[in-house]
């Protein structure tokens, strides 16, 4: 799989990779473009672009608001696909789509995979689609060499993790804690046991996300995770200080 190879390549010589998150069309595609340029220039290794959905069930307040405002501003799926293509043509790092299942389902799963490939996307994160419900999705993702990234949670049993890993491609997204996106995570004993369990369940790289917001958090993940995921924090930063603040923030994380 293309994404796995790219991750392996990016990992050489780095303690940990950085993945960042943006919500497409929030606050605008123009700002998205500037933010992404800053992220890439400062060493971000992967970017997940969230296609906004009206019912972002697994997200917290910051990302909910971004989804909602983007849609209110008139963001359409076609805009997201066009923008994705521009980004993958401009920047050499892997880009992923994160969105909810209805966006794929409504478009038609195979057609959506085709458009994503044309846009240069390398994988998907779909938080409301467990493998049990995703037979078609998994089939087409493989057929089009898109990584169907699966999610581990602290509540997942070891058997469940192994089952999820079998369906997964690219890497595993380990949700650091219970709850939704956007609030702080503590890296205690319980967390370490959880990550050890994740590690024991798969050979795939592990990304850790939810509540990773500063250098200390990223440092704490070195040696445990392969990829640190910065989600809500850059959205907050852009809200408060604009796109230009993203570069120095990212540069200071590793």
């Amino acid at each position: 799989m293309k994404l796995s190879a790219e991750i392996a390549q990016a990992s050489s010589g780095k303690d940990i990779l950085l993945m960042t998150h943006i919500v497409l069309g929030y606050p605008s595609f123009e700002t998205n473009k500037k933010v992404i340029a800053q992220m890439v220039a400062n060493g971000v290794d992967l970017i997940e672009m969230q296609i906004p959905f009206s019912e972002p069930m697994a997200d917290g307040p910051v990302i909910i608001k971004a989804n909602q405002d983007s849609l209110l501003d008139g963001t359409r799926l076609a805009d997201c696909l066009n923008f994705a293509r521009q980004m993958t043509e401009t920047h050499a790092i892997p880009f992923l789509f994160m969105t909810y299942y209805n966006i794929l389902f409504k478009y038609g799963i195979e057609a959506f995979c085709q458009r994503a490939v044309e846009a240069g996307i390398q994988g998907f994160i779909v938080p409301d689609l467990p493998p049990e419900e995703g037979a078609d999705y998994l089939k087409y993702a493989r057929q089009y060499d898109l990584a169907p990234i699966q999610i581990f949670a602290p509540t997942s049993t070891p058997e469940r993790m192994r089952f999820l890993a079998e369906a997964a491609g690219g890497f595993i997204y380990c949700v650091a804690r219970r709850g939704v996106t956007g609030t702080q995570t503590t890296f205690n004993e319980e967390f370490n046991n959880y990550i050890a369990q994740c590690r024991a369940s798969t050979d795939m790289p592990l990304a850790v996300g939810f509540g990773i917001s500063n250098r200390d958090d990223v440092q704490a993940l070195i040696g445990k995770a392969d990829i640190a995921v910065i989600g809500s924090e850059t959205i907050r930063l852009v809200d408060r200080q604009g796109a230009a603040a993203v570069g120095p923030f990212i540069a200071g994380l590793r």
Partner: peptide, 21 residues
């Protein structure tokens, strides 16, 4: 069948709720 009525229904839930369900 597994929460399906014809083609309708199912359980499209985030992983964190899998055990709870």
């Amino acid at each position: 069948l597994n929460g399906y009525y014809g083609q309708w229904g199912g359980a499209f839930i985030p992983e964190v709720l899998h055990e709870t369900f």
